[in-house]
């Protein structure tokens, strides 16, 4: 039997594959969400209506940085879907830089400034684990962005075909949404201890 595989009408078309890959990505995000949900449960179980004593100003800054990065991520996706390569590159680059800025803010500044360490009671354990896991996901997001940036510069994406960009964008937004839950949980809800 020849190696030739008959083209089975819609089964292997790009549109079909795209829908399949989308489902895959959302399922992955759903799974990851459970892990972050577990961290939230941990925070409320151990700390209840108390929260770690953190610098609100820095917290506000890093949150804004991340939210704005999501805006530019969306811009990047819109640009590429309209075939605007330059706009896509620029927006992706900005998103990346803002993401790195977020990491610098949390790991570089927030972690140094905190007057407690990971071994200092439940607030230390909760704070470092939550921000650490989230930061890890931001880091992987940044790496993903670096990949699509590089491939974008080589002209790999078109208005019709840019699944990697869509995937990176959705992943990035997911990580942002996680922070939308983590930020109040760590900085806003309850009394500082």
């Amino acid at each position: 039997m020849s190696a030739e595989v008959p083209a089975l009408k819609p089964a292997h078309s790009y549109a079909y594959k795209l829908r399949t890959q989308r489902i895959g990505l959302w399922l992955f995000i759903l799974s990851d969400a459970f892990m972050f949900g577990g961290l939230l449960v941990t925070r409320f179980y151990l700390l209840g209506n108390r929260r770690p004593d953190l610098d609100q100003f820095v917290g506000l800054i890093v949150t804004s940085v991340l939210l704005i990065s999501s805006f530019f991520m969306n811009r990047a996706e819109v640009h590429i879907s309209q075939g605007n390569q330059r706009g896509f590159i620029t927006s992706t680059l900005i998103t990346m830089l803002l993401g790195i800025g977020f990491l610098a803010g949390v790991i570089g500044v927030e972690w140094r400034m905190a007057h407690f360490g990971p071994a200092d009671g439940p607030q230390g354990a909760v704070f470092y684990m939550m921000t650490g896991m989230h930061a890890f996901h931001v880091l992987t997001g940044v790496i993903f962005l670096a990949i699509i940036l590089r491939n974008g510069l080589k002209g790999h994406y078109s208005a019709e075909r840019h699944w990697a960009v869509e995937a990176a964008a959705n992943y990035w937004h997911f990580v942002d949404v996680v922070w939308i839950f983590f930020y109040p949980a760590l900085y806003l809800i309850g009394m500082a201890i």
Binding site: L30, S31, D32, F34, M35, G38, L39, T42, L46, P118, A119, G121, P122, G124, A125, V126, Y128, M129
Partner: peptide, 23 residues
């Protein structure tokens, strides 16, 4: 979905051992 939780629970003990995080 649920598998993430055994990963998380073991991860927390792993870090309690390594870094003294008192979960």
């Amino acid at each position: 979905t649920a598998t993430q939780m055994i990963g998380l629970s073991f991860q927390l003990v792993l870090f309690e051992r390594l870094l003294g995080m008192g979960f």
